[in-house]
């Protein structure tokens, strides 16, 4: 900072001292290397009874008429010095901040500290997603017990007594009348006992069948079941609903195909497949689950007029959906809970 020339009314000794002190102080300001040194300069020149302020006391030695001019000169000197100090302070502070920022530089390429990762099990996550899709389509989820009554699991679903259809549903019995449900469809009877149409119901949960365990069979698995009864429901409505559902789940190009199949609780009964693009680009049909129009025997047994109402039902496996979407090839992995398996699905 350049010391600005200033006018002295009298070129007295004292005024020279002011000039001298100011020049010295400005030089010291200029030479300060850091804010601490600058602070020392400030104290030495502008502190109480120091530097310019010390010179103020000399005013008494001056003749009366020179005093105002002297005072003014000192004030001007103080102002000049203060401005210089402030400018230097800003400059040094910036410099010191820059130095500090340089010092504080870190290696941003170091790995991050892992956050504790709580994830949902892939079966739960898949079921949640399905609940959202079906919920958005107007289906109300209802829960049924895993330990189910025989009559809901079979009789209410139009299984004739001693019918071979039950061979595919080998069950774990707990008492004479209660078994581990072999299908979430068992909820149908419970709902129809309590409600009058129209209704749209969905349920999801664990099912059990007496099967040897291998990569594609398990005695414990998870199902989604959907059923609805309204006026004038047809196979076209079933196909339309499955189409929307499958496209939400598997992508907008997905198509749905029916094939005749037999389940005691639906007539007509079909299994449905979705179009699936293989890694090599070919499209295959993959069977997803069973479906059909709810059997008239079931509707009639709950006092629902089959002339007025009809309905459809479809079911599918939660594991199957996840396996299709992710390429998991062994059903057993889901209940093994291998950490290396679970951590793959955020």
């Amino acid at each position: 900072m350049q010391a600005e020339p200033f006018l002295c009314q009298e070129n007295s000794l004292l005024n020279n001292q002011i000039t001298h002190l100011l020049e010295q102080a400005l030089a010291a300001v200029q030479n300060a290397e850091n804010t601490e040194e600058l602070h020392a300069v400030e104290v030495a020149c502008l502190g109480r009874n120091k530097g310019l302020n010390e010179l103020r006391r000399e005013v008494g030695a001056l003749p009366k008429e020179e005093r105002p001019a002297f005072g003014q000169n000192i004030n001007e000197a103080v102002q000049i010095l203060t401005a210089a100090l402030k400018a230097k302070q800003t400059e040094l502070a910036q410099k010191e901040l820059n130095a500090a920022l340089t010092r504080e530089q870190i290696d941003v390429t170091l790995p991050g500290i892992p956050m504790p990762a709580g994830r949902l099990h892939p079966l739960t996550a898949t079921a949640c997603q399905i609940k959202q899709i079906l919920g958005g389509m107007g289906y109300e989820f209802v829960d049924g017990p895993e330990l189910e009554e025989y009559r809901y699991n079979f009789e209410a679903l139009n299984y004739p007594p001693d019918h071979p259809a039950m061979d595919e549903q080998n069950s774990f019995f707990v008492t004479d009348t209660r078994l581990l449900r072999t299908q979430t469809t068992a909820l149908q009877g419970r709902i129809m006992e309590q409600r009058k149409p129209p209704f749209r119901i969905a349920t999801t949960g664990r099912c059990f069948r007496y099967e040897a365990v291998d990569a594609t069979h398990h005695h414990t698995f998870h199902q989604i079941d959907v059923f609805m009864v309204e006026e004038n429901i047809s196979m076209a409505h079933l196909k339309g609903t499955l189409g929307v559902f499958a496209r939400e789940l598997f992508g907008q190009d997905t198509r749905v195909r029916f094939r005749p199949d037999f389940f005691p609780f639906v007539e007509p009964g079909v299994d449905y497949s979705i179009s699936w693009t293989m890694p090599d680009g070919r499209v295959r049909w993959l069977e997803i689950g069973g479906a059909g129009l709810i059997h008239p025997n079931i509707l009639r047994s709950y006092g629902i007029s089959t002339e007025r109402y009809s309905g459809f039902a479809f079911g599918l496996g939660v594991e199957r959906i996840h396996m299709l979407r992710t390429g998991v090839s062994d059903l057993r992995l889901y209940l093994d809970n291998h950490p290396r398996f679970l951590e793959q699905f955020a």
């Binding site: 919920g135 107007g138 129209p198 047809s234 196979m235 609903t241 929307v244």
Partner: peptide, 12 residues
């Protein structure tokens, strides 16, 4: 069989 969505809507 065409794809048709059931008429009407319900909260789910």
């Amino acid at each position: 069989i065409p794809e048709v969505l059931p008429a009407g809507s319900q909260t789910g």
